[in-house]
Amino acid sequence: MPVKVFISHKKEDAEQASAISAHLIANGLTVYLDVIDAQLGKSGPDLADYIRSQMDKCTQLLAVISPQTQASWWVPWEIGVATEKERFLASFVSGGAAVPEYLVKWPYLRTRADLDIYVRESKRAELLVEDRIQKGYRTAARAQGFRSFHTSLKASLGQP
């Protein structure tokens, strides 16, 4: 499955999420961004099921974290679903927000240059997954790519 990034964000951060989306697309990644999804008129369990189905089509999740995110129910839920599905996970922290304690173990980005590193590491990890699948290691391929992505991205960003 080629790289497809689910961008999780609070509605108030839609402009930031759209800018991130445009940058990722311009650098060769595919993106799911709910701002342009007409199906989001659903509510409650139907909406949750729909979001899960969209996440099933994605290989990773990039959460936009801002001061407004603290008031969100959906962003933490989407992060939880992505973790459960072993999706590659990172955050883009903006607006002077602090990285929430439960996200410190995952890579976090702050700048456009960090996004470029994210794109590079995403492509590299996906090539690793594809290589492992071609060599017959389908079951372990995604998990190995998952670990490799997080380790390499954190190291490239200078994070412990």
Rank of each mutant, 00 (worst) to 15 (best):
V5R: 01
F6E: 05
I7T: 00
H9P: 12
K10R: 14
K11E: 10
E12N: 08
A14P: 01
A14S: 14
E15Q: 06
E15R: 06
I20G: 03
H23A: 09
L24F: 01
I25G: 00
G28H: 06
G28C: 04
G28Q: 04
G28S: 07
L29S: 09
T30Q: 12
T30D: 12
T30K: 07
Y32D: 06
D34C: 02
V35P: 04
I36F: 14
Q39K: 08
Q39H: 11
D46H: 09
Y50M: 12
I51V: 13
D56A: 15
T59E: 13
Q60M: 13
S66L: 13
Q68I: 01
W74F: 11
W74H: 01
V75R: 10
E78V: 07
G80T: 08
V81Y: 10
A82Q: 02
E84Y: 12
K85P: 00
R87C: 14
R87S: 11
F88S: 14
F88H: 14
L89T: 13
S91H: 03
V93K: 07
V93A: 10
V93S: 08
S94T: 09
G95E: 02
G96T: 10
Y102Q: 12
L103I: 08
V104D: 06
Y108M: 02
L109C: 07
T111V: 11
A113M: 11
D114N: 05
D114T: 03
V119R: 05
E121I: 08
S122L: 04
S122N: 10
A125R: 06
A125L: 03
E126R: 14
V129M: 15
E130S: 09
Q134K: 15
Q134D: 13
Y137T: 07
Y137D: 14
A140G: 04
R142F: 12
Q144Y: 02
Q144V: 01
Q144H: 01
G145N: 07
